[in-house]
């Protein structure tokens, strides 16, 4: 950007039709034209977000993705779904369930993941995890897919320990990109009063993910877990 060029903010406002003042400058400025062309190219690559117009209600799911409502409402609604669901797709372990929302970015389109939807390779997902009780401080998330091996989501390091729970309404830091291994993804979210570390948790988490129940450190009173089973659609090429 040179001294004469308008700022990016003004160029954005011009591009979006809010400010026509830079029109004369833009006509004769190769740099601004290049900037606008690059923005246009980027626009064409961005797909609009897919947002449910109303929350998806599933009798089978304990994960409820409520848009526009606060975490307490989401927690209440999710609890209600569990209460009325005779055969939950997802299961809770000792200590009560953990409220979880998952935001998914697929090919540039943002949406809240509902329990009926499938994951696909290259989906980028982010987790919003709430407390199960007021003393909850830490979260650890792993998944077992068709390979039956534990994929460590949070933390990613094999020796890592639970990360602090983010503030209500904030996602865990960083996204998880879904790989092409066959599904389903059996995601286990572990919220606890104290940090838990992968070396002692990986095997109990694997067993819990595969439906063998809670054991070891996951079976203690200060640990709350939720198991989410998400179908995975693996295609040869995306």
């Amino acid at each position: 950007m040179n001294e004469q060029c308008p700022s990016n903010f003004v160029l954005d406002a011009f591009r979006l039709g809010f400010d026509h003042a830079p029109a004369d400058h833009v006509k004769s400025c190769p740099r601004c034209n290049q900037w606008l062309a690059a923005q246009k190219q980027m626009e064409s690559k961005l797909a609009p977000p897919v947002i449910p117009t109303k929350p998806q209600r599933s009798r089978a799911g304990i994960v409820k993705y409520l848009l526009g409502l606060g975490i307490p409402v989401a927690v209440g609604a999710t609890a209600l779904l569990i209460w009325v669901s005779p055969k939950p797709l997802t299961e809770t372990a000792k200590g009560g369930f953990v409220p979880v929302e998952i935001a998914r970015m697929r090919a540039g389109a943002l949406s809240w993941l509902s329990p009926q939807e499938s994951l696909m390779p290259n989906d980028s997902v982010r987790f919003f995890v709430g407390k199960s009780d007021v003393a909850d401080r830490y979260v650890l998330i792993g998944s077992v897919d068709g390979s039956q091996q534990v994929s460590r989501f949070y933390p990613a390091s094999p020796d890592g320990c639970s990360v602090p729970l983010p503030a209500p309404g904030e996602a865990l830091d960083g996204s998880i990109v879904i790989d092409a291994t066959a599904g389903p993804e059996r995601i286990v979210v572990v919220v606890s009063h104290r940090p838990l570390c992968w070396p002692s948790v990986a095997e109990p988490l694997r067993r819990l993910a595969l439906g063998d129940g809670s054991t070891g450190e996951l079976a203690t009173d200060d640990v709350h877990t939720t198991r989410l089973v998400l179908a995975k659609q693996v295609e040869a090429e995306r």
Binding site: Q39, L46, P48
Partner: peptide, 21 residues
Amino acid sequence: RDDLIGTYQGYGAAVFRRCCQ
């Protein structure tokens, strides 16, 4: 939300570029 979807591409490009910067 529909408005947001309708305008996402324009604003989305601005936000993404800004984050990259």
